[in-house]
Amino acid sequence: MSAQMTAEQLFAMLKKFQEPKGNFFNKDMTMTMPLLESLLANKERYGYMACPCRLPNGTFEEDKDIVCPCVYREADMEEYGACFCGLYVTAEVNERDDTAIVVPERRPPEKILGQD
């Protein structure tokens, strides 16, 4: 098993790809770093980076829509300026003092199967 990547390494790696596309990490590091750690924890637990703020079904096939970056990110960033978990925000949101935004859940509930 390759050594577990650290949240800092993940941050550096993703930042290069995501920022040019307008997806900025939340400047509030009390949000961004724990979320990156949770993505690594979900990768360890489920085998894929399920969104830290959603209840995974437990298989990649059933969770494809919430593997980070989730399929709902684009619409959420357009409407609210942030993705559901708050990891990614727009440049405009990152200029605000407070970057905390509560984004309503866009994922259809029927996608959550509820078995363990």
Binding site: P34, S38, R54
Partner: peptide
């Protein structure tokens, strides 16, 4: 809550 969710924390 979810143990991995920052909003929950």
């Amino acid at each position: 809550a979810l143990s991995t969710c920052i909003h929950c924390k």
